[in-house]
């Protein structure tokens, strides 16, 4: 059963533009050039209970517009949305009680309060019963290792500490659904791993449905089985990570390190192209449906003094960048002359 159902969602913003320079400002006083920007152009998808879905797209693609509509703070122009049986923007207060939101760029804690008092305040705002609250709070404090942070005011926390506290804050009322908007932005490597591990556990152990928007493809790779790619207000791709890969390219990458005690040679091979070279390290790409992995490796090892080699999938960044680029190209091609 789907928890989130989105059908044909559209949203247009009106922005007034001003010609540049002083003259432009003067003209702007008399007449505003109002332009419409189509942020969402007919988006449909559905997400089931307990899924962990990555929602990615370049800046301005419509990611946060979607998340804002789904979390009840923006009203769409048209389309149907049903989340947990609610229309988010219609019965906002009842609805937001059942969801959790974390926006990486801002905190929902109170700047001048100690963390624990922010938590207590959220208990009152969400009307959580004292017993459930204590249970959940203690569990979150333990998993996220917040014990030592509780009496520090929020403004004194580091970004990583703050994000851990924010995650806890969003979950105190035991939401069934969690929206995470760039939860790892600006975090150091250790904090990133901690946040990822927590999200994974939350989803697996508590069955909380998670929608994750991010620019960090490592987040996606580590967490999401399903990825929605949005661009120019449309869904470009919806499926598992391997589907996404397959839809863009079948190619594999072969990295070869040549032995150091031999004169430098350049690798050439009929079935594999060199896409990059760093000293004695060569990056080749090949199509595994045209030539078997073992054959490429055997041939290269035979022809060149190989010190080390390994085969991998192109990184997800590469895949996504290519989707975006193809999208941009087709947009240019489709534009009337």
């Amino acid at each position: 059963m789907s928890q989130i159902l989105v059908e044909n969602l559209t949203k247009t913003f009106r922005v007034s533009r001003r010609a540049p320079g002083l003259w432009g400002s003067v003209k702007g006083l008399l007449r505003r050039d109002v332009r419409e920007i189509r942020a969402l152009d007919g988006i449909s998808f559905s997400i089931g209970r307990g899924e962990l879905v990555g929602y990615i797209g370049p800046n301005g693609a419509g990611k946060s517009t979607t998340v804002k509509i789904l979390s009840g703070i923006l009203v769409p122009d048209s389309g149907r949305v049903s989340v947990l049986g609610h229309v988010p923007w219609m019965d906002r207060i009842e609805y937001v009680r059942r969801i959790g939101v974390v926006f990486g760029q801002r905190t929902q804690l109170w700047w001048d309060l100690p963390v624990i008092e922010s938590f207590d305040l959220l208990r009152d705002i969400y009307s959580v019963s004292p017993d459930r609250y204590r249970l959940m709070r203690d569990r979150l404090i333990e998993i996220l290792e917040l014990g030592e942070l509780l009496n520090i005011t929020v403004r004194q926390l580091s970004l990583g500490q703050r994000m851990r506290c924010d995650l806890a804050a969003a979950l105190l009322h035991e939401p069934e659904l969690l929206f995470l908007d760039e939860p790892t932005i600006g975090l150091d490597a250790v904090s990133k791993l901690a946040v990822r591990e927590f999200i994974r556990r939350l989803n697996q152990e508590s069955g909380v449905t998670v929608i994750l928007t991010t620019h960090d493809m490592d987040d996606i790779e580590a967490l999401c089985r399903r990825v929605l790619v949005i661009g120019d207000g449309r869904i470009l791709s919806d499926g598992t990570l391997s589907d996404l890969r397959a839809s863009v390219t079948r190619e594999r990458w072969l990295t070869v390190d040549l032995a150091e005690d031999v004169p430098m040679v350049c690798i050439t091979d009929p079935d594999a192209q060199v896409i990059r070279q760093e000293g004695r390290r060569f990056f080749l790409s090949f199509d595994p449906q045209r030539i078997a992995v073992a054959d490429v490796i055997a041939r290269i090892a035979q022809n060149y003094p190989v010190h080390d080699l390994f085969v991998e999938n192109p990184p997800i960044e590469f895949i996504v960048a290519r989707i975006y680029a193809e999208r941009a190209r087709s947009a240019v091609a489709g534009r009337p002359q």
Binding site: I73, R97, V101, Q108, I125, Y126
Partner: peptide, 8 residues
Amino acid sequence: AYELTKPA
């Protein structure tokens, strides 16, 4: 706008 995500 994010203030609206609180049930209040």
